[in-house]
Computed example of a mutant assay.
Amino acid sequence: MLGPLIAKAASTVVTGVVGVAAWNGVKKAYDRAPVREAAVRVTEVGLRGVRRAEVRAESARLAVSDVVAEAKDRMGEEVRPPSADAHGHGHDH
């Protein structure tokens, strides 16, 4: 009667030991893997893309403003220079 109980307990202990060893192996592999470095690089690329898009959007806005100003000038309307207050922030691009 004690034999089957010991066999079951031993099986459970072996399963636990194998599980812990597997978990520790995965944890060590994760710690060694360049996961953080990859995340930083991906974020860096994303930020660079956003900045390029902002620069291009600002260039397009300025180009359209120049065209509108020239058209108004040709029509004889007074063209007012853009003011810093119109942008809502106090720095140049």
Rank of each mutant, 00 (worst) to 15 (best):
His93Cys: 02
Arg80Gly: 05
Asp85Ser: 14
Glu77Pro: 05
Tyr30Glu: 04
Glu77Asp: 13
Trp23Glu: 11
Arg48Glu: 09
Gly25Lys: 06
Ser83Arg: 10
Tyr30Lys: 04
Arg48Pro: 02
Pro4Met: 04
Gly3Tyr: 13
Ala63Thr: 13
Lys28Asp: 01
Ala57Leu: 12
Arg36Asp: 09
Asp73Phe: 15
Pro34Ile: 01
Ser11Gln: 13
Ala86Met: 07
His93Ile: 03
Leu2Thr: 11
Gly49Ile: 07
Arg80His: 11
Met75Asp: 15
Gly3Gln: 07
Asp66Ile: 10
Val14Ile: 10
Val14Pro: 00
Ala84Lys: 09
Arg51Leu: 11
Asp73Val: 05
Arg52Thr: 01
Gly25Trp: 07
Ala21Glu: 08
Val45Trp: 01
Val79Thr: 11
Val17Tyr: 10
Pro81Ile: 04
Ala9Asp: 14
Arg41Ala: 13
Gly16Glu: 04
Lys27Gly: 01
Met1Gln: 11
Pro82Ala: 14
Ala69Arg: 15
Glu44Gly: 02
Gly49His: 03
Met1Tyr: 11
Met75Arg: 14
Arg41Tyr: 07
Glu78Ser: 13
Gly90Leu: 09
Leu62Pro: 04
Gly16Arg: 01
Ile6Tyr: 08
Ile6Thr: 06
Val42Gln: 12
Ala57Met: 12
Leu2Trp: 04
Ala7Val: 03
Val67Ala: 13
Ala10Asn: 08
Arg36Lys: 06
Val18Leu: 11
